[in-house]
Design a protein around this nucleic acid. Structure first.
Lengths: 201, 201
DNA sequence: GCTAGTATGGACTAGCGAGTCCAGTCTGGG
DNA sequence: CCCAGACTGGACTCGCTAGTCCATACTAGC
């Protein structure tokens, strides 16, 4: 696997995306290597050729793949939180994204499977959270500069709280199937930011 | 298993608690039936005697066991959210509980393992969330009656948002090991309630 | 202290699924 | 056109683990 030909890269990608798709449908526990092979019309030797450490390496690759999608799916809104309508638009996009995704969260599934053993999975999630939080915080700072949010409010902490609300909303959705909590958390978080200018907390 | 003698009930309980303990330490994926047997000094036949459906039934029982603990661990504060210091005290208790628990969340672990297959696991979590949210909402109503929270605010929705923040904070803690997000979410949620009287959102 | 039902021990099975291996095919640079 | 190295097919091993089975030991009510 030192060098990949075009054909090889394509096969590797096919396996990766096939695994990701299967996990989105059946969860990690419901994914066997043979499932992926059948679905992607590949063979054992190919899988182990491109992912020498087997299942674990594949799962980690899927985690990275899914983590990248998360922020991308929020663009361009996430990077442009410069007005209240923009915040609203972002909020709607987040809700919509997770409503579409349904009850299974690939990332949560993967990380809770790989668990604490491998540092890799945790690292992927941690980095995702940091980047996500940073982008929200940037939005908060924009609004502070525009005089729309109390300048005394800590942008990182506000972003942390908002992010936690999103995560929890999605988590609850996985059990209930409803996005009520996600929406409530986002709305309350944003409402708090808007209100801060009037009544600093 | 129609009737249990005292001895039988004790054995069943030992198995259940042993499984719960093992899961808290190693996660569901890291739990095999033999692990539980070794740990609880019981035999296969006993396990299947008390949990005829085997692993799945045991896991479900553990889920119920853990779900019960969650709310109990927040008492008496959770049931007495009648003043701002009481809210603060509850907030501290929640943070402390999850800080102690560390990076592994048994419930999340179990449900994401049992996954969507069995309706049981989802039901356990859903019911826990409902009860939790209801208790928070009751606290909000108390404060509204005391004139400490804007009466125009929807208590259930506020409780939903706060609950989502908690869940997300805990989820993030599972990756990062830090309770920062949990604390930020709780603090922001409560701050928003307090501020609502001054500046209704 | 009899006996019906409960509790327990532990060997055994069966099947799944990850990972190995080797033999054969393709590809691209020289 | 040649050959080193990338790519592919698929049979095979092997460990692990859930679940079964039967023989035995206990217990409680009568």
């Amino acid at each position: 696997m030192r060098t990949l030909t075009r054909k090889g890269a394509a096969t590797r990608q096919r396996i990766l995306e096939g695994a990701a798709a299967h996990i989105r449908e059946h969860g990690v526990a419901g994914m066997t290597l043979d499932d992926v092979l059948a679905r992607t019309a590949t063979s054992k030797s190919q899988l182990f050729h491109y992912f020498p450490d087997g299942r674990e390496e594949l799962l980690l690759a899927v985690a990275r793949f899914e983590a990248d999608r998360v922020l991308e799916d929020q663009r361009p809104q996430l990077g442009d939180l410069t007005s209240w309508p923009a915040w609203r638009s972002w909020r709607d996009k987040v809700v919509d994204r997770y409503r579409r995704q349904g009850r299974l969260c690939p990332l949560n599934s993967v990380t809770s499977q790989l668990g604490s053993r491998t540092p890799g999975a945790q690292a992927v999630v941690t980095e995702l959270m940091h980047r996500w939080q940073a982008e929200i915080a940037t939005g908060v700072r924009h609004m502070q500069e525009a005089g729309e949010i109390d300048p005394g409010l800590d942008p990182d902490r506000a972003a942390a709280a908002l992010l936690a609300g999103i995560q929890g909303g999605v988590l609850i959705q996985m059990s209930t199937g409803e996005t009520d909590h996600l929406e409530a958390a986002l709305d309350m978080g944003i409402a708090h930011l808007r209100a801060s200018r009037l009544a600093p907390s």
